[in-house]
Amino acid sequence: MQTNPVIKLDAIKKTYHTGEVDVQAVRGISLDIFPGEFVAIMGSSGSGKSTLMNMIGALDRPTGGHYWLDGIDVSTLNRDQLADVRNEKIGFVFQGFNLLSRTSALENVEMPMQYNRQRITAHEQVERAHHALELVGLGERAGHHPNQLSGGQQQRVAIARALVNRPALLLADEPTGNLDSQTSIEIMGVFQKLNEQGITIVMVTHELDVARFTKRMVILRDGRIVTDEAVANRSVAENELQRLRQEQQAVKLAS
């Protein structure tokens, strides 16, 4: 490929110094991710997936190695510059949604724009937030608070929030971890649609079923990459949903 990678990791390490033993959560990961990719990071619990994602998301600093995001050496940035990178270049979707409670979906989605260095008028903020909510199919729920929304809907709000500053990169740490299978497929549908529109997506999951919706699978073990391969039989969310419905229909008819 001729294009430059969005993410370039070079021997990234992360060691936690807690108590007597040092925990080497990530032990030297090198990885290039190019624009338009849709990558699943997999691995068993404790293999370092979240630690890696947090570093890619500029939330955490590696203790060794280099990380270039969009050509910028993130390891050299200070706190404020990291905050700006998170704001402008990255959209992050968390496993636990991490929405502000008692705050409407619309206001949750508006929040990242409040910290945008380019001033966005209040009017434009509302407009963009609405647009992002429509993109994830929640246009009608803008005024709802998180506790009035289902898990899948909350995750959609979180995705809308991640998209609202128009990042080049969407990161998601177990976006379907708290969701049932149908809702998971719906969320993957949203991701596939976004990816088709050109957004690069990196997603952590430990479910193979979910990983199958992506284009590339990276498997970690003990803080190292053990497998990095293209997804063979890629699932398409629309088809999977249809199949699921048919199965449910069949169960209903049988009973």
């Binding site: 905050a83 998170r86 704001n87 402008e88 991490n98 502000l100 929040m111 910290y115 929030r161």
Partner: peptide, 16 residues
């Protein structure tokens, strides 16, 4: 604390 974390995660600087 969590709200602060969320705000920082989406780009709030310390000064904000």
């Amino acid at each position: 604390t969590r709200e602060i974390g969320i705000r920082m995660a989406v780009g709030a600087r310390a000064a904000d």
